[in-house]
């Protein structure tokens, strides 16, 4: 039914792929609001600037690598190399899980520095840590959504449903995954450089 509707649409753009782009715009606004809140609150003073744990840098490298592997899966799909599609997707899921682990280790490193999500009374300046915890956790939720998307795509790939003539799903998956990867790069650079301003 839906497929029939799409056949008659005047635009060449797949409306579902377009919806993914629109979803990404909404996510941009969510994090733009949160990082703006960070800037506004920091400008109020009573704010502790601290160095980000190096584990978050490893997260950044891993998420970039995951984008490379997913792009490899997409390119393989376009060339009808089904083995490459599976390999690319498996690698990406592996990188995604590694990203989650490094995020967890990054939070642990913050706890070791005495920076908690909920800080003690008289430590109001540590609300800066609460912001890092909250924003990175919300980003991780989007990564979890991405992992589900990757798993669905992988199942389809193993059922041989992702190939040259059926790339819609993997294109949508790429669009979302590269976006949330870039979003993390932005957040990392934001947290890294914000204390310097």
């Amino acid at each position: 039914m839906t497929a029939e509707i799409h056949k008659e649409s005047s635009s060449k753009t797949n409306p579902k792929l377009f919806n993914v782009w629109l979803l990404n715009i909404g996510i941009v606004m969510l994090f733009a609001g949160l990082t703006s809140a960070y800037i506004v609150r920091r400008a109020d003073g009573n704010w502790l600037d601290f160095e980000l744990p190096s584990m978050f840098l490893y997260s950044t490298i891993i998420v970039l690598l995951s984008s490379v592997s997913l792009y490899y899966a997409l390119r393989s799909a376009k060339q009808d190399e089904l083995g490459g599609v599976k390999l690319g997707l498996i690698l990406t899921i592996g990188f995604a899980l590694a990203f989650c682990v490094t995020q967890y280790l990054g939070w642990q490193a913050m706890l070791d520095q005495g920076l908690y999500f909920v800080n003690n009374q008289s430590e109001g300046e540590k609300v800066s840590a609460s912001f890092v915890f909250a924003i990175s956790a919300l980003h991780l939720l989007h990564i979890v959504g991405g992992i589900i998307f990757l798993l669905v795509t992988a199942v389809k790939a193993f059922n041989l449903e992702v190939h040259k003539k059926n790339t819609n799903l993997i294109v949508m998956c790429n669009t979302y995954w590269h976006f949330i990867g870039l979003l993390w790069v932005y957040l990392y650079l934001f947290f890294y450089f914000a204390p310097g301003f």
Partner: peptide, 24 residues
């Protein structure tokens, strides 16, 4: 699309303050 996510972000921080004891 451009404004509701910002309220969502604000509302989530409010829920953290209510439920977890943060001080946003």
């Amino acid at each position: 699309l451009l404004s509701f996510p910002v309220l969502l972000g604000g509302g989530l921080l409010l829920m953290f303050d209510r439920g977890f004891g943060t001080s946003f």
